[in-house]
Nucleic acid binder design. Structure first.
Ligand SMILES: [Mn+2]
Ligand SMILES: [Mn+2]
Ligand SMILES: [Zn+2]
Ligand SMILES: [Zn+2]
Lengths: 148, 148
DNA sequence: TTGCGGATTAGACTCATTCTAACTGATTGA
DNA sequence: TCAATCAGTTAGAATGAGTCTAATCCGCAA
């Protein structure tokens, strides 16, 4: 079930879109609310199928467009694992991803600042990095996905 | 220029292939020597083009097959960055990858055991990880690629 | 020699993603 | 009120890395 956006989330969306000169549309609200409703790192197709329940006429192209828009205004991160379909994550806190081999589920792993520092410290002089991506592959026992 | 395999590298190849019940072929030797000649994380197409110089009849399908074989016997790692073409790396030491935004070049970054430990330590109880992938995106000044 | 089984090969196919070009609908301002 | 404008949406075509298929090839052992 897709919840509609809370007042705060709607403001967050509006603020980020306005900041990059883009408009709030019902499609964008719907797609964004899908991402917030179940924080399980859905693929484009999963987002599409969930969003269609609330908005039957929505097209796949628009889902691609919305997600690309959100990424470009920093509302959402793309998550890639090997060459599988790209997944989307609305968690803006620094975090790593843990991919469960059995279930395929992707979990957020909080990334403390000191670990980030320790990672930056392995870069030789002359290397300057803006983005660090960390992903674990393994098994997670009996964890349920974090719903919103 | 593709160098042919040293005695040691040929043994390494043979040993790994035999261990998983597969045969040494001239195609596999050629593809493997391409990977060792220039350790710049080439894509399949780059491997194909380099290997064809030494072996003109070689097919793209075989390059895919060889690389898959090497990955499955642990001779080589796949390296993915977002949704770009997969790259291949024969460096078996634990290391992260640094992707230069300007040049697209991929550099190996040594990964000290204590950093690996610090990463594992952020996993909540119940999460058990076999593989950790770390990739940096940024700029590297005036570094040449590591040739062999 | 001959037969077997793994390896190689060309080309067809898949499918996530990108591109294109037509359409929609809100906004503006004459 | 009406028409122009223009970002956004849409269906469907195109792209391209990777996979699959089915026909040879070839080294080895009986
Ligand atoms: Mn990634
Ligand atoms: Mn990767
Ligand atoms: Zn996440
Ligand atoms: Zn590497």
């Amino acid at each position: 079930m897709i919840q509609s956006l809370t007042h705060l989330d709607r403001e967050h969306l509006q603020e980020a879109l306005n900041r990059s000169g883009q408009k709030v549309t019902t499609q964008r609200e719907t797609v964004f609310s899908v991402l917030l409703s179940e924080r399980d790192h859905p693929t484009v197709d999963e987002v599409f199928n969930r969003a269609r329940e609330a908005m039957p006429g929505l097209s796949l192209a628009t889902v691609y467009n919305c997600l690309e828009t959100f990424v470009s205004c920093g509302l959402v991160r793309q998550v890639n694992h090997e060459r599988e379909s790209t997944r989307y994550c609305p968690n803006l806190a620094p975090h790593a991803h843990f991919r469960d081999k059995e279930t395929g589920r992707v979990h957020d792993i909080e990334l403390p600042p000191e670990v980030i520092k320790s990672l930056r410290s392995i870069l030789p002089p002359g290397f300057d990095s803006e983005v660090i991506e960390i992903s674990f592959l393994g098994r997670a026992q009996g964890k349920e996905s974090t719903s919103n």
